[in-house]
Design a protein around this nucleic acid. Structure first.
Lengths: 206, 206
DNA sequence: GCCCCGAGTAGACACTGTCTATCCGCAAGC
DNA sequence: GCTTGCGGATAGACAGTGTCTACTCGGGGC
């Protein structure tokens, strides 16, 4: 791991840092080049367009997310526990790396249709992640009632997590739970995650 | 309703039309002014900044959504049916008016913190909508098991719908259900909506 | 009749992404 | 040893953007 990494790598790293600190809207091609210490035309050699650079940054985000999952799931075996970790890690990532999470699902900014300069379509980055989810849901469900298409359940479960992360950062969920001030402030998000888990996977067994 | 409406109204209307047809990314201040037939500086009198115009457009979106709900819910009384209509209408709006739906929840583009030039904060536009949801969920739940904080259930339910709409338009849900080709193509979205309804509100009673 | 003021115009400024021509350094070839 | 070629980076140009400011024009109040 030499400190003189290729410019390509450095651009992506600077971009990730910029998205994390300033938000997805502030990531201009020229700004990245500036912070990387090269001229504004330099990135063009590796990323023909702004979208392709953003796509590379988003791809890094999906990789980071998957790494988080792998780290957090290590040592656990119960499918229900694993799904709980998955859920908490998903919304935690969305909150901690809000800019990245935004960028990763902004299809109009990404080359989601075209193949990237390397690797598969960006949309397909989520496929292995989802496969893991389907397998866990199937395992979790087999103990209970009829199978019921685990892929459908997994898709709905993921949707709930995704919407929860999105609406929470958007702010209206907090606002609305304030109005019905039943749940104490620090526990609201945890309660929502637990609610999603229970709703889609059946109530937890102690 | 005079055809010579104020420029302010016309700008918003042109903006809505532009978002619907070209997507949220294509809505420039100058482009709106051009299509409204005025100079590029004219909007500034009514909307001091680009964000404030986008916020006005988004506000119109929330109003449209609420109008759709009111129209679709007319005549129904069963809370479960009403929630079903709510769910289907929500994702239908997201699919039909994809650009508007995108814009409405892009907080970095909107003056979601500052008060608009008229009316309340943009974030609070969703509050009456959510109140309706909480009431319906409470009514729906009272027939079944313990109350369990209807506001929390309603929030999770809304999250699932929101995430479903988002991930469906993003494309990975379709992709992943293709891989597990169990559900025929035309029914996938309906199945997912039904799954969300059942998961959060309990299975439907015929 | 004059003045003022609101509404809209038009130009400037800094900035963006993209395109193009240019230049530098370094290896290969003779 | 000198030239050649070329990948990698530079810098300028161009059209377009949002914002700011000076200006103009027309109509109502005194």
């Amino acid at each position: 791991m030499k400190t003189e990494s290729s410019l390509r790598e450095r651009l992506v790293e600077v971009g990730v840092h910029l998205v994390m600190t300033e938000g997805a809207a502030a990531v201009g091609l020229r700004e990245i080049a500036r912070r990387a210490g090269v001229s504004h035309g330099a990135p063009r050699r590796y990323f023909p367009t702004h979208h392709s650079l953003l796509s590379a940054i988003a791809r890094r985000g999906f990789a980071d997310l998957e790494a988080r999952f792998s780290a957090a799931m290590a040592g656990l075996t119960s499918p229900r526990d694993l799904l709980g970790v998955f859920a908490r890690e998903y919304v935690a990532y969305a909150l901690e790396c809000r800019g990245m999470f935004e960028l990763m699902f902004r299809h109009e900014l990404l080359d989601s249709d075209r193949h990237g300069s390397d690797g598969p379509r960006l949309r397909e980055s989520t496929l292995p992640l989802f496969e893991r989810l389907v397998a866990l849901v199937a395992e979790c469900r087999s103990a209970a009632s009829p199978p019921e298409e685990p892929a459908v359940t997994a898709a709905a479960f993921w949707s709930a997590l995704h919407g929860l992360a999105q609406l929470w950062t958007w702010g209206s969920l907090r606002l609305v739970l304030d109005a019905h001030g039943a749940v104490p402030d620090g526990e609201r998000l945890d309660r929502l995650v637990a609610e999603v888990l229970d709703a889609h996977l059946g109530p937890a067994v102690p």
